[in-house]
Amino acid sequence: MNMFIEQLLNGVAVGAIYALITLGLALVYGVLRILHVAHAAIYTAGAYVGLFVYRATGSIPLATLAAMAVCGVLGILIERAVYSPLLKYPPYVPLISSIAMFLGFQELFRLLAGPYIIAFNARLPLSDAFIGHVRISAPILIIYVTSTLVLIALWLLLYRTEIGLAIRATSQDRAIASTMGMDARSLISLTFFIGSAVAAIAGILVGMHYNQVYPTMGTVPAYKSLALIVVGGLGSLPGAVFASLLLGVLETLLIGYANVPLPRDSLAFIAMIAVLLWRPQGLFGRKGGR
């Protein structure tokens, strides 16, 4: 039983990480209708920046802030330099450029940081916690605390503040939002900044949790998060979070605990295919919605 609970808690942690990555993707899809594959490269960049700043300063909060800032700016640069000029073309054009950027960034990481796995070796300000006989390791505890805080902060920002209302309005109808006095360009940049900064946090959490940072660490999250926004309902933020948590738990329980003989990473795609077959608008999507 304890084993089951530990696996369940692990699954929620994995799901929380997926949620942090997928949220950025859902936000970007919302305002630009682009599948931002290079988002996973930003996540990897976040892990590297966090790692190097942590080594230089020994401070996790400082490393996180630095990674968020660098990745946020990187996100805006990608939007301004690549996506904006391509928006007038059919959606597959920005998609192809996004995949190209993703691959390019991976090579860049390889050149800059070397083609090997670097250990994060973070000394955490927490020790393992015990609830009864169930052990929650310190990195998982950190994932819980951080992702809860980030999700609450994002929720407050998007649903309680004016800027959040503006972002949601822009993502529902950009043309109308601008006739309502909203500067769509700045809001899109802001959205990229927020999504990318959150991806940086996810990168650092994964780097610490698995104690490794490497150039291709974004590959699996890249396609898995794409599957997840489809499952959640394209552009739906609650859908993205729900689908991510569900997948994290299912992966861990079915494959890690129940030993279902399937490759772990296949579940996301089985879910995506099932959703496309039976509920193409996604779990939280509206029928006929844009």
């Binding site: 503040t161 004016e162 800027i163 909203m182």
Partner: peptide, 17 residues
């Protein structure tokens, strides 16, 4: 949404409810 118009320009006010 449009009632907030006057404040969208002000970044700090934008982060209020």
């Amino acid at each position: 949404v449009p009632l907030h118009l006057a404040r969208y320009r002000n970044i700090l006010a934008s982060f209020t409810s």
